[in-house]
Amino acid sequence: MGKVQEYPLTETAFLILLAMYQPNHGYGVMQFMMEKTSGRVVFGPGTLYGAINNLSKKGWIKALFVEKNERKKDYIITDLGKLQVEAEMKRLKEVYEIGEEILRNEGAETNEKV
């Protein structure tokens, strides 16, 4: 199952995968984003629809059984999806730490000058 791409995930895909560690539907994903990013990330319905279909096709999320009266379709992340998230977390951590290191040194230099 080493199906992790060498390319970074898009923010859209990454956030949707995170929202689907719990069973979730389109509207729920939207609310998750609003809450977690304090309204910075707002997915357009077309983008969200395309992304969910795409992740489902890749087998990173899967649709749960839909009850007859329940109109909203729930999805949950798969093991393969979790693998992507873990790889992405590792990548983000690395990138974040590089940024932090550089900015810290930059800050120190500026202080010296002053």
Partner: peptide, 9 residues
């Protein structure tokens, strides 16, 4: 109100 919220889309 944007239907597509990333550039690729």
């Amino acid at each position: 109100f944007a239907i597509y919220s990333n550039i690729a889309d």
